[in-house]
Amino acid sequence: MIKKHSSLFLFLVTSLLFACAPSRIIKPLAKGEQAIGANIGGPLINFGGLPIFIPYTSAFYAKGLNDKTTAFGSLHLTALSFGVFQTDIGICRELWYNPKNKLGLSANPAINFALDRWEWKAKLWPQLDMNLHKEFGSNKLLYLGLCNWFELSRIRPHGEVQPKNWFMSPQVGFQYSPKKWTYGIESKWVAPGVNNQPNVVDYLGPNHKGAIGVYFQFIRRF
C-alpha cells in the first residue's frame, strides 16, 4: 500500500526494528583486548519501486573479559537522531571451540533498552544470538546463526493480545580481518515467522514473510 499511498506512514519504516543490528561479536576477543565498531544496515523495503535497506547505524565497544567471554555495549545512532537513547548490552561467550578445524559456537545474550525524550517511554527486550563460526586461514570467518528477540509484553496497544513474543531471525555473515581491522557483512531473514502483510511498511521478504536484512560492519581492535 505504501506503493499506492506513498509515504503514508512511512514513519513506521524507522520505527521498525530499532533493535536491528548485526551480531556484535562472533568470536570472543582475547583477554584484555578491546574493540570498537560501527555498522550500517537494516531490513529491505520497497521504496518507490526500488529495494533499499533501511540505513540504521549503531556503534559499539567490546572488551575481552577472558579468552572465552567478551562484554559489549552499543549506542544506536539512528535512534539517537530521533531522540531515542537505545543500547544493547551483553556478552559473547564461546560455548564450544574445536581448534583442530577452527570451528566454534558462541552465544550472545544481551539486553536491549530504549528511552525516548519525548514522552520518556522506556522499553526493554532481551536478545540471544547463537552463531556457529568457522575460520578460514588466519583472517577470514564465516558464520551461521540465529538472532532471537523476545517481547516481554503480553499486550499490544488498546489492550489487544500481543500475537508473538519470540522473533527468530536466521543469519549468515562473513568477516575479513586484515591486521587490526575487521570488515563484515551479514544478512539475516528478520522474523520469517511473521507475515509482512498487511503492514504499513512494504518489507521485502520471501513469500511475504519477515524481511531480508543486510548489514555492513567495521571493527577496530586494539
Binding site: 514513519f11 520505527s15 533493535a19 530504549a114 514522552e119 517511554k121 517481547e151
Partner: peptide
Amino acid sequence: AVMSADGAGLNVPASYTTN
C-alpha cells in the same frame, strides 16, 4: 501506536518516531 507495533513486531512506543 498500532502502526508502530505493527511495523516493529515488537511493541515499540509510537513516540520513538512520531509526535
